[in-house]
Simulated assay, not measured.
Amino acid sequence: MSDFHTIDVHRSEGLVRLTLNRPDAANGINAEMARELAAAAAACDDPTVKVVVITGAGRFFSAGGDLKDFASAPHRGRHLKGVADDLHRAISTLARCDAVVITAVNGAAAGAGFSLAVLGDLTLAAESASFTMAYTRVGLTPDGSATYLLPRLVGMARAKELMLTNRRLSAQDALQWGLVTEVVADDALATRADELATAMLATSGGANGGVKALLHDSFGNGLETQMEAEGRLIAQRAESTDGREGVDAFLAKRTPDFA
């Protein structure tokens, strides 16, 4: 991951920090960034990675797809489909890996940048952050999982409003709508993300991954199917190293050591 040009990736024990790093282009997602995001996400899909923190360099989180990159391609549709495919691989991997994904939204998040921002299992927003879909403004339709995520996060009516009117939400609006977990002062965002990452590093990666998997599947399951999945998974966790350690630590009134 050290050979990336459009994202900066720093890995320490159990933690990967991923920074979108095209500040001169508002961290717009071009073909290279989409490929690198997919590769970085694949590297994060590892039991030793407990936390992934995603943020942007400079004033923007991400302005979404890089329209200059798309417009310069000889076959725009084919080019854009390839970019979307790579971005979607990244999003799918991050959504389904065991690691807790923390997004630290440091500025404007538009288009696919909006989707990437609210992908976080825990989403922090700086007070100056903003969110807008922006696709129909240029005659395009959403990608980056927006049509999946937003109806589930804010409901169908509000998802339609965001996508059809390109309404811009402030950080406080996004908090009230349930799109973000917490809003913090601009100069406190990095520190708060570090605090949250440190707290998550002390938790059980397998249990966190199980929570994510159960919640993702819950929208497609009936009640009994979902409860059966819960029963099977909690039984598996009870036999796992982390499950045994967690229960034993609780009974012994000590802090668990989830290695």
Rank of each mutant, 00 (worst) to 15 (best):
K50H: 14
A108I: 10
H79Q: 06
G107E: 05
T48C: 03
T48Q: 14
A95I: 00
D66T: 11
V105C: 03
A126I: 08
A40G: 10
R78M: 09
S128D: 08
F60E: 03
L67N: 10
K50V: 05
C97S: 15
T93W: 09
G107C: 10
L67D: 08
P74A: 02
R89S: 11
D46L: 09
V83P: 01
L87S: 06
G58T: 09
S128R: 15
A39G: 02
V118R: 11
D121L: 12
G58V: 07
D86T: 04
S115E: 12
V105K: 00
L94D: 07
S115L: 02
T93K: 08
L122V: 15
V118G: 04
L94H: 06
V51F: 01
A40V: 08
H79D: 03
A104Q: 12
A41L: 11
V51W: 03
A125V: 12
V105Y: 02
A73Y: 04
I54L: 15
A63L: 01
N106W: 06
D98V: 04
P74G: 03
T55L: 06
F61H: 11
G120I: 07
L67P: 00
F61I: 09
H88A: 09
V51Y: 05
A90H: 04
A129E: 06
E127D: 15
G65Y: 11
S72T: 09
F61V: 08
A84G: 02
A108S: 14
A41M: 08
P47E: 09
D66K: 04
L87K: 04
R78Q: 15
T55H: 13
S115D: 10
R96G: 13
V105A: 05
R78N: 06
R78H: 09
